[in-house]
């Protein structure tokens, strides 16, 4: 059963830097349980788009709706509070804490218990933290220091962190960047499974086209801030505009 309306709806989003349009009139939507990939050559506006959605940037125009409510221009904290989790291109975890403590932090914040000054932090939500570590396969490493994890494990820890407040939407910026090609498929398959189980909408950017075409339900292609194509993997592969952008043609230069 699918809930009515998309989880995330973006309408007419625009942002310029010094007169250069980084994102121009971008409109799309993501449904619950859907994996939507946002691709495009470098400088196409993917990161800008992402930073607007997660609240790091304020758009010049346009609207971002989460479950029908506007979240346009809210700070990252407020957007997270409304059920948006995110992972970063370069992983961001708490290096001086154990894997379990990392997740406990997210849980403490979710339950609004951060402003406590007495009981030790490690006595809060330990079981819940382990319950989040198990599905990403990190429960064996719960006692290890996050600062000494292998990169692939850090990515999985980040996924557990992003899922800690049971989000409706997961934003993943280049989720497989920096990973060995052999590990990439595994992480994305895991994401796909968890998203389906928990009815989470996933929006991700990605450079590895094998990953994109292997896992995305739908693909959006950005070029110079504009949405030039949208559709399934097969449709995107066949799209003349996309081929022009990625492969280059007489008319379009500067592609990758």
């Amino acid at each position: 059963m699918k809930p009515p309306g998309p989880v995330l709806a973006v309408a007419g989003l625009a942002k310029s830097f010094g007169g250069v349009a980084a994102v121009a009139e971008v409109t799309f939507a993501v449904a619950s349980g859907e994996m939507l990939a946002l691709i495009g050559p470098n400088g196409a506006g993917k990161s800008t788009c992402f930073n607007i959605l997660s609240g790091q940037l304020r758009p010049d125009r346009g609207e971002v709706l989460l479950g029908g409510e506007t979240i346009t221009g809210l700070p990252p904290r407020a957007i997270w509070r409304r059920g948006v989790g995110r992972t970063f291109q370069i992983t961001a975890t708490f290096a001086s804490m154990t894997v379990r403590e990392n997740v406990q932090m997210a849980l403490l914040s979710h339950h609004r218990r951060l402003w406590r000054f007495l009981r030790p932090a490690r006595s809060h939500f330990a079981d819940e933290a382990d319950a989040l570590l198990a599905p990403v396969g990190m429960e064996d490493q719960a006692e290890r220091c996050a600062g000494e994890l292998a990169y692939g494990d850090l990515k999985r820890l980040e996924l557990a962190l992003a899922l800690a407040h049971a989000p409706r939407l997961l934003l993943m910026d280049e989720p497989t960047a920096g990973m060995a090609p052999s590990e990439r498929g595994g992480l994305m398959a895991l994401t796909r499974r968890l998203a389906a189980e928990r009815d989470i909408a996933v929006l991700f950017t990605e450079h590895d086209m094998d990953v994109v075409f292997g896992v995305a339900d739908r693909i959006l292609v950005l070029d110079r801030g504009r949405l030039i194509a949208e559709g399934s993997g097969a449709e995107i592969r066949a799209d003349a505009n996309v081929r022009a952008v990625y492969l280059g043609s007489g008319a379009t230069s500067g592609g990758h």
């Binding site: 997660s54 961001a92 708490f94 804490m97 402003w115 406590r116 932090a121 962190l161």
Partner: peptide, 28 residues
Amino acid sequence: RRILAAPFGYALRGVRDSRRRAEAIGVA
């Protein structure tokens, strides 16, 4: 010392470790 071991102290350390992550899990 007690505060440092409590959630507040952890959150403080979390901000030091990674401000981006702290903001992304709703730390003020």
